[in-house]
């Protein structure tokens, strides 16, 4: 084709179609998605719970130890890293489960980049939903604990504006975390040969 000087037409996967496939994939493989999401949910819940607890403490007028701040930052970063590895692992398993599907798509003409795109959209979707759940759990847990220890005056120490800011922060960090964790699995998927479609388990 190219050698004969004939122009090769570019194949395409419109975003709308890719988004539809990825969303269906999350829906139908619900439990697999839950496992992937669990990492993000836990990581974000921890981050938000630390932030919320610090906010309540600050607003209650209690004196905070500055070294405590560093310790908590360190813990949050470590927990997010652990989540990253967890999501990567879950996504890698998901890729190996889908070798036949990926191979088939390639037999139908999919470029490597289409496969990468599908996995990224999927992980961004899962990351987004997981972040919101994680945010809710984090806030809910801390408020509940403080309610038990300090009673109803806790509500006076909560700034709703900050809680909302945490939601935005959670979505940004959670989605990013999920997408970064998918870089390697998506590459593994994209390298899957088209011939994988013909493999038959014995």
């Amino acid at each position: 084709m190219r050698k004969d000087g004939r122009q090769v037409e570019r194949l395409q996967l419109p975003f709308r179609v890719a988004f539809h496939i990825s969303m269906q994939s999350v829906r139908i493989r619900f439990w697999r998605s839950v496992i992937t999401a669990a990492g993000t949910v836990l990581g974000i819940a921890f981050l938000v719970s630390v932030l919320t607890a610090m906010m309540i403490q600050r607003n209650s007028g209690a004196i905070t130890d500055p070294s405590e701040r560093y310790r908590m930052t360190w813990l949050v970063i470590m927990s997010l890293l652990v989540c990253l590895v967890g999501i990567t692992n879950a996504m890698l398993m998901s890729v190996t489960e889908r070798y036949k599907e990926i191979g088939t798509m390639k037999c139908l003409g999919a470029y490597d980049i289409f496969i990468v795109e599908l996995f990224f959209i999927e992980s961004a979707l899962v990351g987004l939903i997981a972040s919101v759940i994680g945010w809710f759990l984090g806030v809910f847990a801390v408020v509940l604990i403080k309610l038990f220890s300090d009673g109803f005056k806790v509500f006076g120490w909560i700034s709703l504006g900050e809680i909302f800011l945490y939601l935005i922060l959670s979505i940004v960090i959670g989605t990013l975390l999920s997408v970064i964790a998918t870089i390697i699995p998506a590459q593994v998927a994209a390298r899957m040969p088209a011939a994988a479609a013909l493999r038959v388990e014995v």
């Binding site: 194949l11 139908i28 088939t104 139908l108 479609a197």
Partner: peptide
């Protein structure tokens, strides 16, 4: 070019049907 060939010139049928399940 191979992807183009697979898309336009060849149609594949598999033993295990290989429909995209989603």
């Amino acid at each position: 070019e191979l992807a183009f060939l697979r898309c336009r010139t060849i149609g594949y049928i598999f033993q295990t049907f290989n429909l995209i399940p989603v």
